[in-house]
Design a protein around this nucleic acid. Structure first.
Length: 802
DNA sequence: CACTCATTCCTTTTT
DNA sequence: GGAATGAGTG
């Protein structure tokens, strides 16, 4: 442990690693991971093992060792993770911006977008120009629908979603339309191949790419273009890849090509970090063998395992460990903590989802007020809201929780970074901006051509499309030539002409230069919202309908302008791999720099396209966070509630087909459990409303796999009978299955007539009458709010005497 | 051509 | 429970 740091720039020259602030308070393995800077390194980091701390220290350490920051790149999966890493590295380097100048910390998809923009002309990618648009899944769907239509295939036989997922799977494995067609044997895959080819053609015609293209095209460019590959390899000599277990084939190839084979005899400096137990994206093409085969790919790679857990209490860890041991396809790794004690994990069997929500709200309230935080490491005055989170398998489950938090007056946020950009008014405004940046973008053009209504209906648009196809010109060009098109009314001609003039007004005919063009991005966004007529349209709607949502739309549009302004302030061209930061002259982007406003607009639209739900997690908000289990990865909370532990939900019904999918669901559950630091509550509802219908559920098999470290609480009125008949999922009830530590007694016995009770909202009251049975109701006279009838099984009553 | 209302379908997770 | 399509009316 007496190794010396190579050198230090802060002048303190530490005598030992103990005194070095970058190495102090690290465990042995963590320190190894930080200091082993040369050559390939695999860090297997168990949940809660201080992974982020280790890799940020490693980056800072590299910089302090004198490695130029622009030659270091860290790749993550979400912007949130990238932003956090960047800011923590900055902090470690005493917030000196010069120290991190040119440091690349970004997501795979952003990196690819920027490399493609920078090298678009060089890369030999036909039809792709630097101002390409990134299509999201809605854009993809609308494009595929048009392709299906022109191929005379019915959308009901060929659901766009299904077709797209086949195409996406192919792209993730780097199979383009040609390769797909070559392998297609049966009618089904031959048809998919046809659609794939048409879809690709349409994308290129629109100068657009989809998410998967970003990876596929970058992988192909790096593979085929030695100049580009060489330039990247020379620039980024130190590579760090987070969540390596979640990389798919395309990402693996990109990482491998960026790392290269090292210079001369030395192997490349590639450090990958991950945990096979937290692999939850196989459905998106992630291939766990990328991490498992790392040592084979880079012989002599250093493998470091971070096993000690610094996050969760022993009972939480034990439950996580017991669960994950049920996975067969797995190399076991011990989870351990040195800290003793900790509250037991609670499993609560609820009657229905309202009941479930109420229980969690009550529990969080208790934790917040501090009545349940009396342990050794309990903070004063209870747990802040931001330290609490609710996880669920599917987004649809958030609604009931939201209602409950809103009703209880507890601040909450839903981690849905994409939600804002999915709103109709925002999509419309963005579609205008996309057309401004890329007039070839037909999906966006078709979206806005008659929004707001300009009298351009199906017949007019059809005529333009036919003309465009015949003349072989892009759609926007066809609009310019509208006067020549037959079958368009004079009215429509005027409309088209005004539309074209409006768009040209924003771009000065595409040059982005000259008098009339906005100086700032926010100005441009504002102009577009006004001059497109969107603002007027929503104003009119708000007046007419006087509805909440229409007034909201105008606010949202304002919000979009603010977001553009914010982006403009924060945008750092030196952090953008599309730009140069290296010693001048080392490769000026071909074709010269675009006008500043255009490049800013591109970067803004790109950032908007690449937001993830997880990016919206903001602990500074002082609110409970609601999110999917997928979005929860990488985070931690003092108190966690996991809801909906039911067969068909977790594990999800779509995962029951294969063992591999089932094991992924188990890992998902594992990820959720291991986010909790001190309090963990897992719930399952006996009845749940699913697409409008109340359905009886089966408790998740995972509940039966959690071991016996936990407590089962049941507030169901017929709890005892239920527990007898409960068979956790498909697992047979064995003698060693978890039994309730304290089964609830029938509620009517607990609250006899005349007893005094306390209700979380209504306060203290006296039980007047009670009806027996499964849905026991009690009439209770509350001191403050009068007499109410409550369904006992749904209410969290506390007996206080009488 | 624009707008409203009813019907039908589908529902994982996400860059 | 919600989006997306289709029919019908102004």
């Amino acid at each position: 442990m007496e190794e010396h740091a190579p050198h230090s720039t802060d002048g303190m020259s530490p005598a030992s690693t103990e005194a070095d602030p970058l190495l102090a308070d690290l465990t042995g393995p963590q320190r190894d991971a930080v200091m082993h800077t040369e050559g390939p390194v695999l860090v297997v980091a168990a949940a809660g093992s201080g992974k982020t701390r280790t890799i940020t220290r490693r980056m800072a350490y590299l910089v302090r060792c004198g490695i130029p920051p622009w030659s270091i790149m860290a790749l993550t999966f979400t912007n949130k993770a990238a932003a956090e890493m960047r800011s923590r590295v900055m902090e470690l380097l005493n917030a000196d911006p010069r120290a991190t100048r040119g440091l690349t910390v970004t997501t795979f998809h952003s990196l690819c977008a920027r490399l493609l923009r920078r090298y678009a002309d060089l890369a030999g990618l036909p039809g792709l120009k630097a101002d390409f648009t990134i299509y999201d899944s809605a854009d993809q769907a609308s494009l595929v629908k048009r392709v299906l239509e022109s191929a005379q295939l019915s959308a009901s036989n060929w659901p766009p979603r299904t077709v797209l997922s086949a195409i996406s799977a192919a792209k993730n494995e780097l199979r383009d339309a040609g390769a797909y067609a070559a392998q297609a044997g049966d009618f089904y895959s031959k048809t998919i191949a046809r659609v794939y080819a048409g879809y690709e053609k349409a994308l290129r015609a629109a100068n657009a790419v989809d998410f998967d293209d970003l990876l596929l095209l970058t992988a192909r460019m790096l593979k085929e273009n030695a100049a580009v590959r060489g330039e990247c390899q020379r620039r980024w000599q130190y590579l760090l890849i987070d969540e390596y277990q979640d990389t798919n084939r395309a990402q693996f190839v990109i990482a491998s090509l960026l790392a290269g084979t090292g210079d001369g005899r030395r192997p490349p400096n590639i450090c990958v970090v991950g945990d096979p137990d937290q692999s939850i994206y196989a459905w998106r093409g992630a291939d766990i063998s990328n991490i498992l085969d790392f040592e084979r790919q880079y012989p002599g790679a250093r493998v470091i395992t971070l096993g000690e857990n610094f996050r969760s209490t022993a009972p939480i860890l034990s439950v996580a460990d017991t669960l994950i041991r049920n996975n067969k396809q797995r190399k076991h790794k011990d989870l351990f903590t040195r800290r003793p004690g900790g509250e037991r994990v609670q499993i609560v069997l609820c009657q229905n989802e309202q009941h479930e929500a109420t229980l969690i709200v009550d529990r969080f309230k208790a934790l917040h007020s501090g009545v349940e935080e009396r342990g050794e490491d309990a903070p004063e005055g209870g747990l802040p809201w931001r330290e609490m989170a609710v996880f669920y398998r599917t987004n649809a489950l958030s609604r009931v929780m939201e209602d409950a938090f809103r009703a209880a007056g507890i601040p909450y946020v839903i981690a849905r970074g994409t939600a804002f950009f999915e709103r109709e008014e925002i999509k419309n405004a963005l579609a205008y901006l996309r057309v401004v940046a890329n007039p070839a973008d037909e999906v966006s053009l078709l979206r806005i051509i008659n929004t707001p209504a300009r009298g351009l209906g199906d017949s007019t648009i059809n005529a333009v499309e036919v003309y465009a196809a015949h003349a072989g010109v892009p759609f926007f060009e066809a609009l310019r030539q509208a006067p020549r098109i037959v079958g368009i009314s004079a009215r429509a001609r005027g409309s088209i002409q005004r539309f074209v003039e409006t768009v040209d007004g924003w771009t000065a005919g595409g040059s982005f230069m000259g008098e009339g063009v906005s100086a700032s991005l926010a100005d441009l966004v504002e102009r577009v919202i006004k001059e497109s007529g969107l603002e007027k349209m929503y104003q009119a709607q708000a007046k007419a309908a006087r509805s909440e949502t229409d007034a909201e739309r105008l606010d949202n549009l304002d919000e979009l302008v603010s977001s553009a302004r914010q982006f403009e302030l924060e945008y750092d061209p030196t952090g953008d791999p599309a730009n140069d930061v290296e010693p001048a002259g080392a490769g000026v982007p071909p074709g010269g720099a675009p006008p500043p406003l255009l490049s800013l607009l591109r970067a803004y639209l790109e950032s908007v396209s690449l937001v993830a739900d997880a990016d919206a997690v903001d602990p500074s908000q002082g609110a409970v966070t609601l999110m999917t289990l997928h979005a929860a990865k990488g985070l931690e909370f003092g108190a966690v509630a996991m809801i909906g532990l039911e067969e068909g939900l977790l594990p999800h019904s779509r995962a029951r087909e294969s063992d591999a999918a089932l094991e992924e669901e188990r890992r998902l559950c594992f990820v959720g459990i291991t986010r909790a630091m001190r309090h963990l509550q897992i719930t399952s509802a006996k009845y749940r409303t699913h697409r409008g219908l109340m359905e009886r559920t089966i408790p998740s098999r995972f509940l039966g796999e959690l071991g016996r470290q936990h407590v089962i609480v049941s507030d169901q009125s017929d709890a005892l009978a239920d527990l007898e008949e409960t068979e956790w999922g498909s697992r047979p009830a064995g003698p060693d299955r978890a039994l309730p530590a304290r089964a609830a007694s029938p509620l009517s016995v607990k609250f006899p007539i005349g007893s005094l009770v306390r209700h979380p909202q209504f306060g203290v009251g006296k039980v007047l009458s009670i009806t027996p049975g499964a849905n026991a109701r009690a009439q209770i006279n509350f001191r403050d709010v009068g007499t109410k009838t409550l369904v006992l099984s749904m209410t969290r009553l506390e007996r206080i005497g009488g």
